[in-house]
Nucleic acid binder design. Structure first.
Length: 339
DNA sequence: ATCCCGGTGT
DNA sequence: ACACCCGGAT
């Protein structure tokens, strides 16, 4: 089996393992209702129904006015937005998304773009590998799907840079399918509102995933608004440390409030790497210097040395950027953005 | 479990 | 300083 196929199979296996809804019959995994428990599931569905009404009204009045929340946004535009939003605040994404979609309105356009232009347009959004994967994704969509983003979970998941969250978000927001979108915000809100406990972070637990499916509105059209609204509530009101419960449309029924908010803000935060002095910082400096250069011009190694005191670290970072395809090595040790 | 990035809020 | 941000790949 060639590596490419192996990768897709691994991703697919992870996908079905995560989505009990899809795999329950074949793999005999427990359904969300079974995980939550039959009677508990009925209670949650009832509770979710009243929450949905309150949330819809809140959403209508409080949703942020973001450019991709527009009838004319294509599925591809939704995907670009979701990829840019991975680990990046929405407010910072807005100008980048506007410029990006103006320059490359569809997958076919991005597929043909110069790598250097793609990296430059990604600017300071962070995690520049996301930009390369988005272009690889565009190339596959253009070549394999006639420039139309597939509306199938497994096919989306097989594309570069698309994981469970992004695949689900595209299905829900772009195609209106009934899919539970699960990110840190939604996990926090649902866990608080319906279970009365904090979502502790780390990887998504089976219970959290089951909960998201159980409280998801049955009607597909309502499920998309639900996903958006729960996420928005988590971003604006039901924040991690200082939730604005006075403004919350769910405060009357919130299990977390009823329980006295035990362990508010407690979060076994996934051990994130520090930034100062790490390879990440050095890589960022190198990319920043390269983006500032005119197209095709090289960054001299001696100039790169000014960016990092540790010679071994500098070499390591240059090598890793080369491995990632973010830079090209010229004349042995000088650098430039890839063609 | 670890790495990747940069801006913002506290 | 520190956690957080609509995660993904390894």
């Amino acid at each position: 089996m060639v590596d490419g196929v192996k990768e897709v199979c691994k991703k697919k296996w992870r996908a079905v393992r995560c989505c009990y809804d899809f795999s329950a019959n074949f793999f005999q995994k427990p359904t969300p209702v079974q995980i939550v428990g039959e009677s508990r599931a009925r209670e949650l569905e009832q509770s979710a129904q009243s929450a949905r009404l309150a949330l819809q009204a809140w959403w209508a009045n409080n949703a942020r006015d973001l450019p991709w929340r527009n009838e004319s946004t294509t599925p591809w535009g939704v995907l670009v937005c979701e990829v840019m939003s991975q680990q990046t605040q929405m407010s910072r994404v807005v100008p980048y998304w506007n410029a990006w979609m103006a320059q490359w309105p569809d997958a076919a356009a991005l597929a043909q773009a110069d790598k250097a232009d793609v990296i430059r347009a990604w600017g300071r959004l962070g995690y520049p590998r996301r930009a390369l994967r988005l272009q690889e994704c565009a190339q596959q969509v253009a070549a394999q799907y006639d420039d139309r983003l597939p509306s199938d979970y497994d096919e989306l998941l097989a594309l570069p840079g698309i994981g469970d969250y992004t695949a689900s978000a595209v299905l829900s927001f772009a195609f209106g399918k009934r899919v539970a979108v699960i990110d840190t915000n939604i996990r926090r809100v649902l866990s608080r509102a319906f279970l009365g406990i904090e979502s502790l972070g780390g990887s998504c637990t089976p219970l959290e995933r089951a909960l998201a499916w159980v409280v998801l509105p049955k009607a597909a059209g309502e499920s998309a608004v639900w996903n958006q609204a729960v996420m928005e509530l988590g971003a604006i009101v039901c924040t991690a440390k200082q939730p604005l419960c006075e403004q919350c449309p769910l405060r009357a029924q919130c299990a977390f409030v009823k329980a006295g908010m035990p362990g508010l803000g407690e979060r076994r935060t996934r051990p994130r790497q520090k930034f100062a002095g790490t390879d990440r910082q050095v890589r960022g400096k190198i990319m920043q210097a390269l983006r500032a250069l005119p197209t095709g011009q090289t960054l001299q190694y001696k100039d790169a040395q000014k960016l990092c005191d540790d010679a071994a670290q500098l070499d390591r970072c240059i090598a890793s950027l080369d491995e990632d395809g973010l830079i090209e090595i010229v004349n042995g040790h000088d650098m430039r953005l890839p063609a």
